[in-house]
Amino acid sequence: MKLAPLDYKRPASLQEAIAILAAHDGAALPLAGGQSLIPILAFRLAAPTMLVDLRGVPGLDGIAIGPGGVRLGAMVRWRDIEDEKRLAAAWPLLPAVISHIAHYQIRNRGTVGGSLAHADPAAELPGLAVTCDATIEIVGRDGPREIPASALFVGALSTSLAAGDLIVGMRLPPWRDGRRWAFEEFALRRGDFAIVGVAAYYDLDDAGRVVDAHIGAIGVSEYPIRLTAAEQALNGSPIDDATIAAAARAACAMVEPQDDIHASAAYRRALVGTLTERALARASA
């Protein structure tokens, strides 16, 4: 399982990186932490002629926490998020989700941008991004642009990025005080990709009714999805067992998962309900 021959460049600026990527028209791939890309190369499932290491590109790291929300640079590692203790108060769902990603050594190298660009249907960060209305910051041949996370993912391991596009960061909107939240994941072993994961948050109005419910799932389709039917079942209702059960039923009903060697579609569908129920119960506790 040795990698196929390839070239390597470590550009010192974003412009240089983009120029190299664009010049290779898809045959060059950006290399961030490499924790998803290098296994693919080891299995020779992809054959880039060039890797463009982003390590030397300035300005891609850094976690910014402010009134506008949280911004994560593309080269922020999982470990950086774990180490940023202010997030526990500023955006508690983020570290909760991150703690499920892979293993210790992977978390020391895997990056925000790498995970988003890899677009695994069961990966946690893409799920969080879609669930929470994250904005993806992209720089491409024509300069910078921003897209909602939901516009990034177009299929399993497939994004709307063009050759020469680089993800440079991701922004999460402001976190409201008193927000209720939870993340539930079922994986067959610690650190494995999720069979199903459900992220949820909502706010309560003065009357104790749910407003602005956000619920999303990973592992149930080619890319992360919002469980909009479950959100509708919550919005405007007081949070109680009946509401939670209705939301869980709605979540189950709206997903169309596939069979694979690890789990049947029926199992995944049932898990969406179970995990939605558990997430909402925990959020409301």
Binding site: G34, Q35, I38, A42, Y104, Q105, I106, N108, R109
Partner: peptide, 9 residues
């Protein structure tokens, strides 16, 4: 930092 040396060029 502990890293997997098979996942690093």
């Amino acid at each position: 930092a502990a890293v997997r040396s098979c996942l690093m060029l």
